[in-house]
């Protein structure tokens, strides 16, 4: 009985923000990263990372959808029958993705056009289902919301790292601004001298397999630093 009372005491208000809540946000960014440790949501991580802008927009969209779908599922978790919970969860996710997609279409049409089907594919992003099953079905709405934000940020972090490398070395620019490689001026007039001309953009980095290699390198570095994550099997 004493243990039960302790548990009740430990949760004074629904919106506390203590150490364990902070851990919910910081943990998925490194130690429990959804992409490199839990292997969730890899599909879209590869297709949208050719440009940094696309990756940032995708990261924001996924963070919003994970946070709110976690929260809504946690609110409804006592009313959802076990046998049809997958369909209920999918409908919640699909509703939120539709909202995000229509909002993006209204706010920034060119980016929406470039992301094409990949905004829709957030629905089947395994991060969502994975977190709903593993966390939101057994925690209160506020903690689930924070867990969603944390996992969304962990996913965005990987996306932004991969996209920054791919855009910098593949196109020689970041967020559309020229950083290295020959400028447009040089292409028109090869006599124009600029110290940036030494670099030729590497087309391989733009192709999707390069994203695979980059994620593998991130996994390598992360596990070399954090040896408890190493795969024993």
């Amino acid at each position: 009985m004493a243990e039960v009372q302790d548990l009740i005491k430990k949760e004074p208000s629904a919106f506390s923000f203590g150490k364990s809540e902070r851990k919910l946000i910081t943990d998925p960014i490194n130690d429990n990263n959804p992409v490199t440790v839990q292997i969730l949501g890899v599909c879209s991580a590869l297709a949208v990372t050719t440009l940094l802008t696309k990756a940032i927009v995708m990261g924001i969209a996924v963070t919003l959808v994970t946070a709110f779908s976690n929260m809504f599922t946690a609110m409804l978790r006592d009313y959802i029958p076990k046998s049809i919970r997958m369909i209920v969860q999918l409908v919640i996710i699909a509703f939120l993705v539709t909202v995000v997609e229509l909002a993006l279409k209204a706010v920034n049409y060119p980016i929406w056009k470039e992301l094409s089907v990949f905004i829709g594919l957030i629905i089947t992003n395994c991060i969502l289902m994975g977190r709903l099953e593993a966390f939101a079905m057994s925690n209160n709405p506020w903690r689930s919301f924070l867990d969603g934000i944390g996992n969304g940020l962990g996913y965005s972090a990987i996306l932004i790292i991969v996209a920054a490398v791919r855009e910098l070395f593949g196109k020689g620019s970041l967020l559309g601004f020229k950083i290295i490689g020959p400028s447009a001026e040089y292409v028109l007039n090869t006599n124009s001298i600029s110290w940036l001309n030494w670099y030729t953009p590497n087309n391989l980095v733009i192709l999707s397999p390069a994203a695979m290699f980059l994620v593998a390198i991130i996994i390598w570095l992360q596990r070399a630093k954090n040896r408890k994550l190493i795969d024993i099997s």
Partner: peptide, 23 residues
């Protein structure tokens, strides 16, 4: 295989190489 790449890391690299082959 170097320990940190075992399992998942290698799977990523293999899939990338297969992707290039399919190109």
């Amino acid at each position: 295989i170097p320990a940190p790449l075992r399992g998942l890391g290698m799977a990523f690299i293999l899939t990338g190489l297969m992707g290039i082959a399919f190109m």
